[in-house]
Amino acid sequence: MTSPDNNLVQKAARGDVEAFARLVRNHSGLVYRVAMRVLGPQDAQDASQEVWLRVWRNLKRFRGESAFSTWLYKITVNTCLNAHRREQTREAREFGDEFPYLTIPIPPGGEYDPEAAVLTGERRAEIFRALERVRAEHRAALVLRHMEGLSYAEVAQILEVPDGTAKGWVSRGRAALLVALSDGNQDGESPGNMGGAS
């Protein structure tokens, strides 16, 4: 834990609301960002408020064995996963005789070039729609790994699972997201805009 966070946490745990306010202002971006990516924009605000309530109630339990941000990630992800506890498993684990047509259309003039996959509002919305179709645990792992840029060890620590399980969840989440994105393109919901020139 960084020293400023350490001091603020200790003060806030003793009931110092000003110290807690500084923690909230310093880290509200992390909480809201993760909630938005795991739950979607509509539920992110409620989840963020719930996270900060839990943080305030549990500050005394924070021992500083990990970084404050890791502890915060853990509470945020747990809060988001609880919101999805009753969610059914949405991933199809089996294919038929052939792969379904899984593809994100290649941008004109930008074949195989990740730089050409420019992020537009529509494309962002499509990603979030597809993420909703990925099982919650796998989605959380995917968000932490590929959006938050965390290592597998950090993902495992936050999700409180072994490293191998974290890797498996990210892997399945990646595959499920690709399937969901391809389904979206095939359904004609937003034809071609995943890779379309912007």
């Binding site: 994100i104 074949e111 730089e115 990603i127 690709l178 995943m194 890779g195």
Partner: peptide, 17 residues
């Protein structure tokens, strides 16, 4: 085709990140 789609998808996730 799958590999190319993955690369594009990961680039988009990174951009959102």
């Amino acid at each position: 085709r799958l590999a190319a789609s993955y690369v594009r998808m990961l680039a988009l996730l990174g951009a959102i990140g």
